[in-house]
Design a protein around this nucleic acid. Structure first.
Lengths: 208, 208
DNA sequence: GTCTATACCCCGATAGAC
DNA sequence: GTCTATCGGGGTATAGAC
């Protein structure tokens, strides 16, 4: 694209992250806490230590384009954590429970400020900004594919794996929101235990 | 309070809903679709066919107070539907699955515009408006209590019922959001089936 | 209780120098 | 690529007549 976009993730040697990446990270963090409408472009510029001109230079599509980039950034971040949890556990059920614990840890460490960046960015504009809705849908779809693939590796039937992946991601999303609103990790702890049991049930008796 | 607030739900004979109730309903509907920050007080007044002066007359606390009232309104609406579904089914598992179907129907009928009014109103301001976070927490807590009570009536152990209620509400919330983002009822359909199986599992083999 | 008018502020986005 | 200045509009909330 522009002369400054080298490959994908910029690598500026020892100069720290490039301007574009700082803007994306700032957008993601702010919209995670305040949502799309609650976050201003000027606030993003300030948080990223960039000027308004730079923001619109890299994102001529304005706030909507910023939100899409932020959702994709949050998508990659959680995908990495999810893959780590699933790979580290012998059993997929344990991996899912570990992921729930990881989410609970992140929420507690941020004093319940950092929920799902995709959900908080997309909710409230799914009906009016199609690009944002689509980016959020793609994020959920990718996360589900990671879960389903791990389940299939472990011998689950394809349909079971696909359906369980839906409920795993839905439940983690809902429990994270409940935890944020309650300022209590109980919803995530309980969700992790129940999801592990549900997955174990399908491992033992494949189809209903 | 004021001379016009008679009991709780106004009953104006044949004059239709009173101004205050129209404002609450409009706030709930708009924030359900656009979130807290995406909804303007002027827009609320227009949707309620009221003037800005009337809005601030009934809600001197402004937008924050409107949001709390809207969340409580949405809480009551879903509580009624949830209670209906649970009461109509012989088995709590069937009642929960029916509730998932009911949510899917509402989403589809609104062309995936009407998600959970509590979630969309509260997400994005849980960190900055304590009253709104608290109202949302109370809504979830009440919904969980309805599920837990029904499970206990059906012979579930108290702890199992309490914990299952957490996951039932979390999963329905997450699946509703996933359905909205995907514009597809699959997440809710699958969630309903899985929750029914999970509940059935605890009915058969009480403690893990 | 209802209505109009308005104060005051910040929004997203753009222009154009450097 | 970065920066400042600004435009046009809409935001929340209030004042005060009726």
């Amino acid at each position: 694209m522009t002369t400054n976009a080298r490959h994908e993730s910029d690598d500026e040697g020892d100069a720290g992250p490039g301007t574009r990446e700082r803007i994306v990270v700032a957008t993601s963090r702010l919209m995670q806490r305040q949502g799309y409408s609650g976050t201003g472009v000027k606030q993003i510029a300030a948080e990223a230590a960039a000027t308004l001109g730079s923001v619109y230079h890299f994102f001529p599509g304005g706030k909507k384009e910023l939100a899409v980039a932020a959702i994709r950034h949050g998508e990659r971040e959680f995908a990495e954590e999810l893959a780590r949890c699933l790979a580290a556990a012998e059993d997929p059920a344990d991996g899912i429970a570990a992921c729930a614990r990881s989410l609970a840890g992140g929420m507690r460490e941020s004093d319940w400020a950092d929920g799902c960046p995709v959900a908080s960015t997309a909710l409230g504009v799914t009906g009016s900004v199609p690009d944002i809705r689509r980016a959020a849908d793609e994020a959920f779809t990718h996360w589900r594919s990671l879960v389903a693939e791990r389940l299939r590796e472990h011998g689950f039937a394809g349909d079971d794996a696909r359906e369980l992946a839906y409920t795993v991601i839905s439940t983690l999303e809902g429990a994270e929101m409940a935890a944020q609103v309650a300022r209590d990790e109980a919803p995530l702890r309980i969700a992790g235990a129940h999801l592990a049991r549900l997955v174990g049930l399908y491992a033992a008796a494949p189809r209903s």
